[in-house]
C-alpha cells in the first residue's frame, strides 16, 4: 500500500508542477503542450480515484479535443500575425 502512496504523491507533484509551468511560461506553444500533459496526468488521477467514467471523458476531451482545439487556434493566430507583418 505504501507503493500506492508513493505513486499518488509523485502524481500530485507532477500535476502541480505542470500546472505551475503552464501558467508561468510566457510562450503560448509551450503552455499548450504542458496543458496537454496536464490533461493526461489528470486522466491517471481519475483512475487512482476509482472514477473510470470521468477518466474516459477526460481522456477523450481533455487530452484529445481540447489539445487539438488549442493547437489549431495557436496555428491560426500565428499565421495571421505573420500575414499582417508581411503586408
Amino acid at each position: 500500500m505504501t507503493l500506492g502512496l508513493a505513486f499518488d504523491l509523485l502524481l500530485a507533484c507532477a500535476l502541480l508542477w505542470s500546472a505551475w509551468r503552464t501558467l508561468s511560461t510566457p510562450r503560448l506553444d509551450r503552455a499548450i503542450i504542458l496543458f496537454i500533459a496536464f490533461g493526461l496526468l489528470m486522466t491517471i488521477a481519475w483512475i487512482r480515484l476509482s472514477a473510470p467514467d470521468i477518466a474516459l471523458a477526460e481522456a477523450a476531451i481533455g487530452a484529445g479535443l481540447t489539445g487539438a482545439l488549442l493547437l489549431d487556434a495557436y496555428g491560426a493566430l500565428r499565421q495571421r500575425k505573420r500575414r499582417r507583418k508581411a503586408s
Partner: peptide
C-alpha cells in the same frame, strides 16, 4: 487571453 483560457481550465480541473 489564450493563456488566461488555460488558467480558466486549470481552475475548473
Amino acid at each position: 487571453l489564450p493563456r488566461r483560457i488555460l488558467a480558466f481550465n486549470l481552475m475548473g480541473s
